[in-house]
Design a protein around this nucleic acid. Structure first.
Lengths: 301, 301
DNA sequence: TTGTAAGCGTTATCAT
DNA sequence: ATGATAACGCTTACAA
């Protein structure tokens, strides 16, 4: 031990991993780091892993399924002991691949009732449906939706589905509400907002797939001389910092991102140590009413 | 090759690393992921590494020097071929440790003139000095500073130093300007702002160490019934999304974060392939004038 | 060009 | 307990 100290000996990780066939590393593949929600969740994920002596290996897929598949194989080849994935939208081949190699996984950011694989998240559909019901209860009848591309993205799809569900229950024809799909960015939110307001009967309330899109819409509204929420209501989703800082501050859905990251890590730690999971639990979201939602000025029956 | 396909063979990373004594992995240690500037830079860093067939291993130090040292040793033990570090504030023992193991490193987010180790960044001091000169040229004589803790953080220290430098050059006593140190968060920015405005002669302009602090101050100003920039000017630093979304939008210093991440990766790629570096280059920042800076209402000689 | 064998630095197994 | 030794799955140098 004295010699260890003196020579500054450090065990060789690769040799250790090769011999023990485990690495003490868990992988995380997220769509992009450049989004506060994933960054925040990952930070918490890593903190929790660290407390268990594990290290995190991250990769981002840029929202490309093929790239994600490649990253998964890459991380598995690097010997990750477990894997965190975002959402559940991916081919069975990937799930099979992971299962044959018996790599424990957890999917996060999206809770599926009765899912067969471990997941930690929230009910995107229900959260959006609740928000939409609140909007409708204020008297809005003409809604518009700005969403991320729904292909390969269950969160985006579920959110739109939830909104449409509430709309339908209110007796409004679903195909009546215009849906625009754009990639997440402030500029795209602004563009989509402008397009929506150009319709023959512009929406009195616009539901956005996340806060980034919503603040983009908000900025464009001001630029177009529209007052929010007097002339038009706008809602977000996620409740990141942007939402409380915008003007007016954004009415949105709060998602416990840090809590989700921690929980994802805890599940994985149980899985790698062979513990049984006590079933999947959904995290709670809640509507944060701030300043961008009000009843329509021109109430119509 | 047909067999490879059929059996789904994947080379074993650990064995490969052990035999070749290189891993194709580079490490990055950042203070926190939960900050748009690092997250954005890392995303670009990873994209560039990916194009060279390298993978990124991240760890975050939570701004703790001891934790950072531990993370460095951990990543080195894991066999990273190179390392990206933020800023230059750390003990010589760490630099020696890295040098004896001949692990190439690059320090980012902070450019030091004549630095002996490869670095990519910008001149925090000069950028802040320029911004401060601009503020002073508008007629402000009572400034206040909200900074991150300067210990172990050269970026924060240099920014304050730059502001003080400009103040001194304008013939104002440096010890005249109050400096508050708080951890980066919106809430802390708000608190610090309130404290600053409680002084006998409150500042007419407040320079914040970054945008997060600045939007916190901005929100508090509104809450206190102060109009920005009429009653008080506020400036940020970084130019993240928050800055363009706040109201009024923030006057701040734009830092090319993505470009910095890419460049850091490029430098490391050169280093691992044994290429010579053509000296360190500084990235340019620029002042973005938006809506939170104006001359003081009560001009005084 | 193709094949063979000796490491790489651990862990784990089996004698002693 | 302690110590020797065979994997682990690759790279690489050297022979054939």
């Amino acid at each position: 031990m004295a010699a260890v100290d003196q020579l500054g000996y450090q065990p060789n990780f690769s040799a250790k991993a090769l011999a023990a066939s485990k690495t003490g590393t868990v992988g995380a593949i997220i769509p992009t780091m450049d989004n506060a929600i994933f960054a925040r969740g990952l930070q918490a994920f890593q903190e929790e892993l660290g407390e268990h002596g594990y290290t995190m290996l991250v990769a981002s897929s840029s929202y490309h399924p093929a790239l994600e598949a490649q990253q998964i194989r890459n991380l598995v080849a690097r010997g990750v002991d477990a894997l965190m994935l975002i959402g559940t939208d991916r081919g069975d081949d990937i799930y099979n691949y992971l299962e044959t190699r018996s790599i424990p996984i957890v999917t996060a950011w999206s809770f599926q009732d009765g899912a067969t694989i471990p997941c930690i998240g929230f009910d995107n559909r229900d959260a959006m449906a609740q928000l939409t019901r609140r909007v409708l209860s204020l008297g809005h009848r003409h809604l518009g939706i700005i969403s991320a591309p729904r292909a390969h993205n269950d969160r985006a799809r579920e959110r739109v589905e939830g909104a449409l569900e509430a709309v339908g229950q209110a007796g409004i024809a679903r195909d009546t509400v215009p849906i625009l799909e754009v990639n997440y960015s402030i500029a795209n939110g602004a563009r989509a907002f402008a397009a929506l307001m150009r319709e023959p009967t512009p929406p009195t309330a616009i539901l956005c797939g996340n806060d980034v899109l919503a603040v983009g819409a908000l900025g464009k509204a001001r630029q177009m001389g529209l007052s929010v929420p007097k002339d038009v209501s706008i809602t977000g989703f996620d409740d990141i910092e942007l939402a409380e800082v915008s003007y007016p501050p954004l009415t949105t859905v709060h998602v416990p991102h840090r809590q989700m990251g921690r929980a994802a890590a805890q599940i994985l730690m149980k899985l790698v140590s062979g513990e049984e999971l006590s079933g999947n639990a959904a995290l709670k979201t809640r509507i944060i009413e701030r300043g961008t939602l009000a009843g329509p000025t021109d109430l119509q029956a």
